[in-house]
Design a protein around this nucleic acid. Structure first.
Lengths: 292, 292
DNA sequence: AGGCTGTGATACCCGACGGGTATCACAGGG
DNA sequence: CCCTGTGATACCCGTCGGGTATCACAGCCT
């Protein structure tokens, strides 16, 4: 009946992410009282309590967590509508490709070279994002296509084209005893008391419990490894951003990682088709062996 | 930068569907001038012309077609956010299943029986929709799960579980010469001058060119067959809604149709899992053979 | 030709509501 | 115990979305 407005969703997402009306208001460039009022009104309209207001701070209710997830999707869809409409008539616009910073270096180079070699192809513009953000870039129309990784990324709602598959390595501080081993197993790296696995924020921004440090960027992580605070298990090709203080050791029983080209399901365009074509050429080329 | 509001999208969709400001305004329960102004403002904000205004009538531009498609998706996502949030805390709510009216009769009966037989399962509520509308019911949160058909329905963005596969039949007016044949081929039915294939509206509401009549509901279609105006090729189980004036003849080389249970990718709930479980029991049972 | 009809655009007014400032109520903590 | 920091409340104001009346113009009938 009465539809929500994107303004209300934006406001709620800000509060749900900050868990603080003041900071959320600041982020939204408005003052705090109208924000309080807007959220109250949203709760009244939905007939559901979204936030537990404690005297000092705010917590999400179950319904609040549902709305946070759904609102992000909805806002992405609205943003995508605007972006794709603005660019609808620009046929020469570049194809925007998004990928995790630091991942699949060499493969990306090959893909770009292969795409550039094909004539009458739109230029490809590369955007780098934080870990796990590719899906949101695609959903919100900020990117047309992404490099993602199976099985670590959630590929629901996307069409994909496999590019290459590789094993994983453990990234360790160079002084650590395990760094001297020629190879490791998941059992070896899973429970190293002095190098607990780092914890990434969940979708709602909270962190799971555990002994490891909290991180949200790859460079943080790299530095923590160099400082002997944690270890990583990552695809072999990610050694590209390995620090001098890091040592990479193969983990022989870790699941293989497949790098895939992904785009929103059902979104076809000539430029995308051309890139997928170029990708097919790269597909069976091992990343370490450049075509002569 | 400046986000669109759902109100603007709703207004644009109404105009784009009606291709008439007056009727669109009526549908939106507002008067025509504010609607004209809102659309102009939307065009100005996007920096793109969405409509070609002719002195009598309106036509979509390329950008307008893009926005129509994207806006529907975005509005569905916003509506879904509201619905799913309202129902987030209602664990005993029924699971809503949507399916095309008239399709997969017997299969649906079995599925419901099978689901009801399992204890501690949420009740299943059945909603019937027009042809091809299932995806929008799922995307907008009006339904949790759907019966859809591969390869005719677009399953992009959904997880699916196959239920059963069947051949297709041609539905003909009983007096027609072809109705006497024991079986037919696609070549037989593809070019029958006096029974041209009916035309369905595209996503943007326009109809493809061709000799056949324009239809948008199944009952229209059924009546047109009975009136000897067109013919249909449909899954064998759809004979359930066959009229006395219809004759069904197998089309031996038509692609097989698989009925699948579909739900939004990544949306897991205990109730849905229970239904998928029940569906697995139905899967290998031929539709015509009820379990004793 | 000339009025008629029906289209979307324009002009103008008004009330609702989103936003601001000032302030309150209240829980912790030095 | 006052100070700090939280979200809620009270109140004002300007913007803007909505309404009515009207215009401009292209077909179409007599």
């Amino acid at each position: 009946m009465d539809d929500l407005e994107t303004r209300e969703l934006r406001y709620f997402v800000a509060v749900a992410e900050e868990l603080h009306f003041g900071r959320a208001a600041q982020r939204l460039q408005i003052s705090q009282p109208p924000l309080s009022r807007a959220i109250r009104q949203l709760e009244r309209r939905l007939g559901v309590q979204l936030l537990d207001r404690d005297r000092r701070g705010v917590a999400l209710t179950g319904a609040g967590r549902v709305l946070l997830r759904e609102a992000r999707v909805a806002l992405d869809a609205v943003a995508a509508a605007a972006r794709r409409t603005r660019r609808a008539e620009d046929f020469q616009r570049p194809l925007v490709l998004v990928t995790k910073a630091g991942a699949s270096h060499e493969l990306l180079r090959q893909l770009l070279a292969s795409s550039a070699a094909v004539t009458d192809t739109a230029p490809v513009e590369v955007v780098l994002c934080e870990v796990g953000e590719q899906a949101r870039f695609l959903r919100s129309g900020r990117a047309d296509v992404a490099l993602m990784h199976r099985p670590v990324d959630d590929l629901a709602g996307f069409d994909t084209e496999d590019l290459c598959t590789e094993g994983q390595v453990a990234l360790l501080p160079s002084g650590h005893p395990l760094a001297a081993r020629p190879q490791l197993t998941l059992a070896d790296v899973g429970n190293v008391p002095d190098l607990p696995i780092a914890r990434w924020p969940r979708l709602d921004g909270s962190y799971p419990d555990g002994p490891g440090p909290e991180v949200h960027t790859q460079s943080q992580l790299a530095q923590l490894v160099a400082l002997s605070k944690t270890l990583l298990v990552i695809p072999a090709s990610s050694r590209a951003w390995q620090w001098p203080d890091h040592v990479a050791v193969p983990v022989i029983d870790a699941p293989e990682i497949t790098t895939v080209l992904a785009w929103p399901a059902g979104h076809h365009s000539p430029a995308l088709a051309a890139l997928a074509q170029a990708a097919a050429g790269v597909r069976n080329t091992p990343p370490a062996a450049p075509t002569p």
